[in-house]
Design a protein around this nucleic acid. Sequence first.
DNA 1: TATTGTTATACTCTATAACTATA
DNA 2: TATAGTTATAGAGTATAACAATA
Lengths: 137, 137
Amino acid sequence: MADSLIDAAAVFTFAVHEALTRVASTQQLSVTQLRVLGILRDRTPSMAELADHLRLDRSSVSGLIDRAEKRGLVVRGTAEHDARVVTVRLTDSGRELGAELEAEVDRGVGELLAAATAEDREALVRIVGAMRRVGGS
Amino acid sequence: MADSLIDAAAVFTFAVHEALTRVASTQQLSVTQLRVLGILRDRTPSMAELADHLRLDRSSVSGLIDRAEKRGLVVRGTAEHDARVVTVRLTDSGRELGAELEAEVDRGVGELLAAATAEDREALVRIVGAMRRVGGS
DNA sequence: TATTGTTATACTCTATAACTATA
DNA sequence: TATAGTTATAGAGTATAACAATA
């Protein structure tokens, strides 16, 4: 596969990642915490499910949620069918912050893509669709 | 800008970032250390220039290079024109490891993009070209 | 005085190993 | 026994503030 393609993928990745870092850091959050807010927007997963989404060890997620809970962004709950399971959901304040940051991400990433043509932007959406069909994520 | 586009950018970014993390971790390296090896491939920058490339504080780069030097991947040198300046360059071993990992990155990222059409892959290269012309990086 | 780089410090993120509670 | 989650521990990565050496 052409070298310029791999380069492009890497440059794109670092640029978007940097935009995410910048947005998150306006609220003293990491990109991982930003992802947590995004994941919880329409889910109330168990710790294990959250770890799977993030592809992190459960012990890492324990610490992550400790810190997010301390900041009042999320709360731990219990699942009724299995007393071992801990669920995580957004607080109102977490949902509000998540929505704010999502808007900022839209703005920041949108800015990065503003110079591309509409056709090329559509190609990006198709690429990710193809990735998903193959990669399983 | 369409929501699916921003989503696609984020999903793409996390997928590539994860592939880079996976490759780097086969050698107990972070993505940042992997980037250092890539940056030094055809440059011998000062600490300040390296910090600019990585968009990190100089103190962060001091620690990064401490660890890379301890592993024998890079060496610090001096610039003849200014005794304050410290330069960084790859050792032979660092260059070799960098080449190995670059091949793995090509393979891993190439795999992610394998399902996309050639036309769409070309669009990605154009998108990054447009980003570069605007964004300054 | 200004700049380059390092050090001290503090915190987040991450994994591994050992543990507790529940199934 | 097996699974869900936490805790203890260790190390990397990052920034801020204070510093030393050089310009």
